[in-house]
Amino acid sequence: MATLHTRSAARLMIAPSVLLLLAWMIVPLALTIYFSFLRYNLLMPGMEEFAGFSNYSYFLTDPAFFQAIFNTLAIVLGVLFITVIGGIALALLLDQPMFGQGIVRILVIAPFLIMPTVAALVWKNMFMNPVNGLFAWVAKLFGLQPFDFLANAPLLSVILIVAWQWLPFATLILLTALQSLDEEQKEAAQMDGAGAWSRFIYLVLPHLSRAITVVILIQTIFLLSVFAEILVTTNGGPGTQSTNLTFLVYAQALLQFDVGGASAGGIIAVILANIVAFFLMRMIGKTLEA
């Protein structure tokens, strides 16, 4: 019924979603931009005044900002590296015939379903704790000095925890893609004399490229704004060693009550995310259409 009145009915049906998302996109963002030009601290209400770009210059010259940018990128790239490589390896392994494949799958998927605060706390206390953690016990077993992960390698610890959470996602998606590879193609390659390694390079990897793109895209969206894991484990510290951009803005707003400064930081985060998103959307547009 591609008739005229169904077309206008269709518009009516889409309208609520579009309006809500439009409002969600515009109203808070406009307010953030507005606040970012004010000197505005929640501890000093009524003292708001126009501040020009001073919030931005303050934020951009803060050494913590560069640390945060570095940490944000380190988390995104570090986790992507671990999960994509590990995910491909695990997917290839799980694709082999074995006993109890379904159960192994269930075990591997589990970390993805764990809420971030639980994952972070369990790792922080029960594994990485230098006194009572399991890692400390294992170190002592070998006569080594226990390593205080969160104090001495905070960023790496956060990366490991987040990677543990996202490895199942990558594995699951790559495994699904792997299972859709045509069996006859593999057989044809075998007939053509391709060894296991050549089959992987020339057949499996190209087949997975779409899924790998999707994994990178979606994980990047989420990894750019890792928050709970940092809040619960290191609180951004020691100092700002494990503060990413999201956490920095949060600290500025809700710990120092500096609305203006936090807003400027928020806008910078939005701009950076948009630069990344610009490239991501072009890629995702191509992949989803293909």
């Binding site: 889409i14 979603s17 579009v18 998302l21 969600w24 996109m25 109203v27 808070p28 963002l29 307010l31 953030t32 606040f35 969206i221 750019l224 704004s225 928050f227 951009l245 999201t246 803005v249 949060y250 707003a253 809700l254 609305v259 936090a262 807003s263 930081g265 928020g266 806008i267 985060a269 939005v270 995310a273 948009n274 990344v276 998103a277 991501l280 959307m281 995702i284 547009g285």
Partner: peptide, 24 residues
């Protein structure tokens, strides 16, 4: 385009609107 635009709203970092949301 509408679908892609909707997806793009997911790309906006939450922290960009944390302050106004909190205040509102």
């Amino acid at each position: 385009d509408v679908l892609m635009w909707m997806l793009s709203t997911k790309m906006m970092p939450s922290v960009g609107v944390l302050v106004p949301m909190y205040l509102m």
